[in-house]
């Protein structure tokens, strides 16, 4: 019985894995197919041609031409790649500097709770609603068509504060009181006790922020006119139907850095989620 249950769980798990991995496998095999082969497979879907969608996971004539075209013949890809790295890096750095202390303040000082409630309401407002007001504000601050117009609003995002708040609020007050009795200042308490204890939460928050801002598309499309400032997420819409193979190759390449980030931080993510669930 137990073996059957275990087998069932295993099969179910495999099915889930297959379903979730299928898009990635689709992209990867598509990136190895030639243009003609892709036209035959996807012509009916993409360009409204005759026939039906047909896909083979093993390319008949595998080729690395699309990767070569992206890596060596498309300097704009790398320009946008480094724009994404810079933008995401600045946002994460900003969130570390601003978000973590803000979350600590909201978590440990009760008098800030009313502000925190208002702050959380802001989290509910989607970007589409606040887009116009944000545009006007950035224009007034002369931050339109500038990287800081994307970075600064993201640095002061409510979401990481909310996540970190949950981690910081779970730290026992007695630990902090003990530190105060020993003469530690509030800053020291924050830096020596709060941050190390909340490391899992901080890493989780940063990871989730990384994934969110690496794939950011709405704000750059709205606030950035200069194409040389665009992040990588805006490169894909520039690819035409005739370069479907290139779009598949780009999709794979775009995934690499988030994949490394996720691998590096998955332990913290697990700890963070476990700690969160435990507190709940």
């Amino acid at each position: 019985m137990k073996k059957m249950q275990k087998a069932g769980k295993f099969i179910f798990g495999c099915m889930v894995i297959v379903v979730f991995c299928l898009p990635v496998v689709f992209l990867f095999t598509g990136s190895l197919k030639g243009t003609e082969e892709l036209r035959e497979s996807l012509g009916a879907v993409i360009s409204g041609g005759e026939g039906s969608f047909q896909w083979s996971f093993f390319p008949a004539y595998p080729t690395l031409r699309h990767y070569v075209e992206v890596v060596f013949d498309s300097p704009e890809f790398w320009t946008l790649f480094w724009n994404s790295v810079r933008m995401t890096g600045l946002i994460l750095l900003g969130q570390i500097i601003v978000g973590i202390p803000a979350a600590w303040g909201f978590a440990r000082y009760r008098f800030t709770r009313p502000v925190f409630r208002i702050y959380m309401i802001l989290m509910m407002i989607p970007f589409q609603v606040r887009m116009v007001s944000e545009y006007l504000l950035l224009r007034r601050l002369e931050l339109l068509d500038s990287l800081w117009g994307i970075v600064l609003p993201a640095v002061f995002s409510t979401y990481p504060v909310f996540i970190l708040f949950q981690f910081f609020v779970s730290i026992p007050e007695e630990v902090l009181d003990a530190a105060r009795i020993d003469g530690a200042s509030e800053t020291k308490i924050f830096l020596k006790i709060g941050v190390p204890i909340g490391k899992a939460g901080i890493c989780s928050s940063l990871m989730l922020s990384f994934v969110e801002y690496w794939n950011l598309i709405e704000q750059p499309m709205t606030f950035l006119d200069t194409k040389s400032l665009w992040p990588l997420s805006l490169y894909m819409p520039q690819i035409t139907e005739a370069r479907t193979g290139v779009s598949f190759a780009i999709s794979i390449l775009v995934m690499i850095l988030p994949f490394f980030v996720f691998l590096a931080g998955q332990e913290y993510m697990q700890k963070g989620i476990a700690a969160f669930m435990k507190d709940e």
Binding site: F72, P75, F77, W78, F81, W82
Partner: peptide, 10 residues
Amino acid sequence: LCTVISRGLY
């Protein structure tokens, strides 16, 4: 490196 190479080729 790829950035530099692709820029150079371009």
